[in-house]
Amino acid sequence: MENLEKGILYVVATPIGNMGDITLRAIETLKTVNLILCEDTRVTRKLLDRYEIKVSAMSYHQHSKIAKVDEIIERLKNGENMALVTDAGTPGISDPGNMLVEQVVGEEISVVPIPGASAIGALISVAGIDMQKFVFLGFPPHKKGRQTFFKEAIEFKYPVMYYDSPHRLLKNLELLKELGYAKDIIVGRELTKMFEEVVRGSIDEMTEYFSRKEKIKGELVVILS
């Protein structure tokens, strides 16, 4: 049974690029909690300063030790309300937020979502293909398991989405071609930012397009259609 004296962990979505993409509810929540948990306090502080949010921030990331998790849970048990944010987007998607939520839920502490920006949702909205059913695979492995990742990706009967990094995009496109992938690809780069672009085409067309760039920059979301 839930103890009403316990605090609440709010999982708050923040902008993925454009600082204006934050909800009024998110701002209100960040202003009223006792503590904000974030991946990088320097990154989050820029957002907090933009909206004049004076609440203290504490780092929580994939390398955080068990002692920090224990401290967070203890403070929640003692009635403090906290907000969990990521550097960009919605916590729990390809970041360690889900692990903290699992621990908090296990202690019967309330977890409340404050939805908002997500690179996945942003690209789906402009994809122009049937995305009623799709598979999201996160980031491909750097080395070990990379080929298996893409072999499995092209076998799904639904569109597959994954995140990619600028310095691995061309290598991954090359691997997809080697594996016989022949459908179109959609790449969203720098979504919501000044140099945002959504590029569609075959593997050869995508490879040619991105090879012409002197340097590929920004966050990438890919759809194998």
Rank of each mutant, 00 (worst) to 15 (best):
M1D: 14
I72C: 02
T86N: 12
L191I: 03
A117I: 07
A153M: 05
E155C: 03
R189I: 08
Q147R: 15
G145T: 08
R168T: 14
L30E: 14
S211L: 07
V101K: 01
E197Q: 13
V126A: 14
C38D: 04
L35S: 01
L170K: 11
T90A: 07
A117Y: 07
S94H: 02
V101P: 08
K157R: 14
A88P: 09
D87I: 02
E196F: 09
D49A: 09
D130W: 00
I73G: 01
L76G: 02
D130T: 02
K65Y: 01
L84A: 06
L24W: 06
Y162S: 09
R42M: 03
C38T: 12
Q132Y: 11
E107S: 00
I8Q: 03
G89S: 05
E155N: 14
E178D: 10
L170W: 06
M82L: 10
V221G: 04
T86Y: 03
E208H: 05
H63T: 08
I36A: 06
P140N: 05
N81A: 09
L123V: 12
L170M: 09
D21Q: 08
V55G: 06
A182E: 15
I129L: 06
S225K: 13
G138H: 12
K54W: 04
M82C: 08
A13N: 06
I120D: 08
I124W: 12
T29Y: 04
L76C: 03
E5A: 05
S165Y: 06
T23W: 00
S94V: 09
H167M: 15
S211I: 06
G20H: 03
D40E: 11
I185T: 06
V12Y: 01
D184E: 15
A119R: 13
L191E: 03
A57L: 10
L137S: 14
D87A: 02
G17W: 04
L48Y: 03
R212Y: 13
R75V: 02
T207D: 13
L123M: 10
E5S: 04
K46C: 13
K183A: 12
S125Q: 14
P91E: 06
M19Q: 07
K171F: 07
V43Y: 02
E80P: 01
F149C: 02
